[in-house]
Computed example of a mutant assay.
Amino acid sequence: MTHRTKAPAIALLAVCAGLITSCAAPGGDRAESARPDPVADAASAVDRGNWPKADSDGLAKGLELPLEAYMQSYEESVTLDNAQRRLESECMAEYGLKVTFPPAGMNPPPNDNDANMERRYGITDRAAAEKYGYGLPEALQRQQRTELPALTQPQVEVLSGRTSLNPADTRAAPARDSYNGKEIPEDGCAGRADDTLGTRSLDLTLVSELDGQSLVRSQATPKVRAALADWSACMKDKGYTVDVPYNAIDLAPRAGDTPSKEEIAVAVADIDCKESTGLVKIWFTADAKIQREQIAEHRDQLNVVRKEHTNALSAAKSALGG
């Protein structure tokens, strides 16, 4: 769920992802006089009930990896996105252009951050497994329809500083120098919002890479391999032949959206065997040890990332009036 990379205008592109044609619909050069109404009511407009919790349920409850201190939570990503959209809308209003972006947070992921603790070592929540097997709750499977604004050509240029919102469009050219008598920034209002938030240089890639590496390395440690063998033997005793938890889902392929009784049975057995063998805590302990070593090795880089992220969040909250 990494939110920011070094590419400019990321919030703008996220809003228009998959709908470049709609977002870049051609239009006239007339000014639109109206005050922006970007995301002022975002908090009340979005149902936060399905947002992922910071703490997992089940066997992973209370487990927090060291690198999570450097990760971006889902709530933080929503704050940054909403601030970006508000700043973009306010900037465009200076050109006489009204654009209202939908609020962020309408289609949350199942995990709060990149660690994905609830499913990092396979499924761990027995109550959820009894209902959904290896699947997700229905609310997370349904994507809410997000009405995206169809932008006129002047809006595209003022927003992005280019003639297209698609960064892969080789035919795109720099935007016109000015609109409505006001100079257009090099990267448009989206770039100006990035500068205000300080997100141009914010890059959480290192954190994600280290997190992925620690998971792979920990699986290969002797204690985890022994625990995995115990888990596999437990599953064998229950009638299931499988080597690692990640492959257990293949024991009962799903034909539709609803889990079968067999899938639920496999999922429950999977978690029960994790509990009886102590697999999750053993794996977490090895994982956390590796991450502490990674942090010590990359401390300076990680501290820069955390500082930039903290500053960006502070700027975002100010932009949202918080």
Rank of each mutant, 00 (worst) to 15 (best):
Ala40Asn: 13
Glu293Ser: 13
Arg292Ala: 11
Ala175Arg: 00
Gln84His: 14
Asp272Val: 02
Ala24Lys: 04
Val304Lys: 15
Thr199Asp: 02
Val156Tyr: 00
Ala25Gln: 15
Tyr74Met: 00
Asp230Phe: 06
Ile295Ala: 12
Ala104Met: 01
Leu206Gly: 10
Ala40Ile: 10
Leu67Asp: 04
Tyr121Trp: 09
Gln141Trp: 01
Asn82Gln: 12
Ser164Cys: 10
Glu308His: 13
Arg225Val: 03
Arg192Leu: 12
Tyr240Trp: 11
Ile10Phe: 10
Glu130Lys: 07
Asp300Ala: 15
Gln294Thr: 07
Ser160His: 04
Gly133Ser: 02
Pro174Ser: 04
Arg86Trp: 04
Leu136Arg: 06
Gln143Gly: 11
Gly198Ser: 10
Leu13Trp: 11
Arg176Ile: 04
Lys6Arg: 14
Ala175Ser: 10
Val305Gly: 02
Pro52Ile: 02
Leu210Trp: 02
Ala25Arg: 15
Ile249His: 03
Glu183Ala: 13
Gly181Cys: 09
Asp29Asn: 12
Tyr121Asp: 02
Pro26Gly: 14
Asn50Gln: 02
Arg299Asn: 15
Asp243Cys: 04
Ala31Val: 15
Val242Glu: 00
Glu68Gln: 13
Arg35Ala: 14
Pro52His: 05
Val156Gly: 05
Thr170Val: 14
Arg254Gly: 02
Cys91Glu: 08
Gln84Glu: 15
Ala42Tyr: 14
Glu138Arg: 05
Asp57Phe: 08
Ala43Val: 14
Glu308Ile: 07
Asp211Phe: 02
Ala190Cys: 09
Tyr179Ile: 03
Thr21Met: 14
Ala175Gly: 01
Asn111Gln: 03
Thr205Ala: 11
Tyr95Thr: 06
Thr79Ser: 09
Val242Phe: 01
Ala229Leu: 09
Glu308Gly: 11
Ile282Phe: 02
Thr285Ser: 13
Ile282Gln: 09
Gly188Phe: 01
Lys6Gly: 12
Gln155Pro: 04
Tyr240Ser: 05
Lys238Ala: 11
Val78Lys: 03
Trp231Pro: 00
Tyr70His: 09
Val242Trp: 00
Asn247Asp: 14
Glu64Lys: 15
Gln141Val: 05
Ile123Arg: 00
Glu183Arg: 13
Asp237Gln: 12
Ala139Asn: 09
Ala129Tyr: 00
Ser232His: 02
Arg145Tyr: 12
Leu87His: 05
Pro110Arg: 01
Pro52Trp: 03
Cys23Ser: 13
Leu87Ile: 12
Ala11Leu: 04
Ile290Trp: 08
Leu197Lys: 10
Gly105Tyr: 01
Ile249Ala: 11
Thr79Lys: 11
Glu118Asp: 03
Ser22Gln: 15
Ala45Asn: 10
Ala14Ser: 13
Ile123Val: 08
Asn107Ser: 03
Glu147Lys: 14
Glu157Val: 08
Thr277Val: 01
Ala115Trp: 03
Ala252Asn: 07
Glu75Phe: 10
Asn303Pro: 07
Leu151Thr: 06
Val304Cys: 09
